[in-house]
Write a protein that binds this DNA or RNA. Structure first.
Lengths: 151, 151
DNA sequence: TTAAGATCGTTTCAAATGAAACGAAAGTCA
DNA sequence: TGACTTTCGTTTCATTTGAAACGATCTTAA
């Protein structure tokens, strides 16, 4: 007596989210890499430094939702290419003050409109209301995850 | 003359999608690993085999949106643990017929309701309409990506 | 038939990942 | 002070990843 499972991966929300999100990420990564030679972790670091510098590595972690190892690598790479500058913190020697260099700011100012353009490209089929709603949905799911993770 | 960029990563859709989706995936992976000892690629393979077996590796690729290397590894691991069985295709020796073993089907039948329960848990803050809408949004974004990728 | 090309699944390789170990620097508390 | 703990950022390590190379099999076309 087999109960029909009727399970369809195609309509399973976590699967769909994962597939679509990965495709979106790949599309962005391709543009960033091709046009600016940077990875997504690097782009995230530049984005928050452009808006909030100076920041410590730890503050970049918090603002980008990346773990500290990933941030450390992104920062090292950006430093090596002269896109950001580091300065010791005046009172706390553990912290590092990171800012965009002139070259880094140049990239930041070029990359933001590009990012917005690609975002617009990807969401072309969505109305303004769809996008607002999607943000709300992500808020709610995020709140649920907060609860679930606190076990 | 600095133009305010006003860019906020927190409200940048691709970033939000990525962060939330990765959290969801991690939550599922933790449950699958803990309760059944399988990874997400393995779970995907089991899910499609449970619904559509027999399948070749290639058909699993198509149905799970995983590349063939990942499928090959998941299949190898599931074979080693006796959760799936392989048979040569009758006419085409390149193909492999994969099915769930008895043990594999047992896991399948246990894991589907668990997956649905976790999905319900994560989407608890969403109405039925929210979920329908989210699926539509993912459809539209997927369609846009199809267009974008065909360049 | 046979040569050339396509398809299937595995394996290799280099890069990316995250958990954990680590040294250095602050903070806490007796 | 001085021990203990915490925080910061780097590095190490094992695992995962996807692109590419590969051998084997099948298809196509001469």
């Amino acid at each position: 007596m087999k109960r029909p499972s009727g399970f369809d991966l195609e309509s399973f929300l976590p699967y769909r989210l994962s597939v679509t999100t990965n495709r979106v990420s790949r599309a962005f990564a391709a543009h960033y890499e091709e046009e600016f030679g940077i990875s997504i972790p690097e782009w995230r670091a530049i984005a928050v430094l452009g808006a909030f510098a100076p920041l410590s590595s730890n503050e970049i972690c918090e603002r980008t939702a990346m773990d500290k190892a990933k941030v450390s690598r992104a920062v090292a790479s950006l430093l090596k290419r002269g896109l950001i500058a580091r300065e010791p913190h005046e009172t706390d020697q553990r912290l590092i003050q990171l800012t965009l260099s002139r070259a880094g700011r140049k990239i930041y100012e070029a990359i933001i409109p590009r990012a917005r353009a690609i975002e617009a490209e990807v969401t072309k089929g969505l109305s303004k209301a769809d996008i607002v709603h999607l943000h709300q949905v992500l808020d709610r799911v995020g709140a649920r995850l907060d609860e679930i993770e606190s076990d």
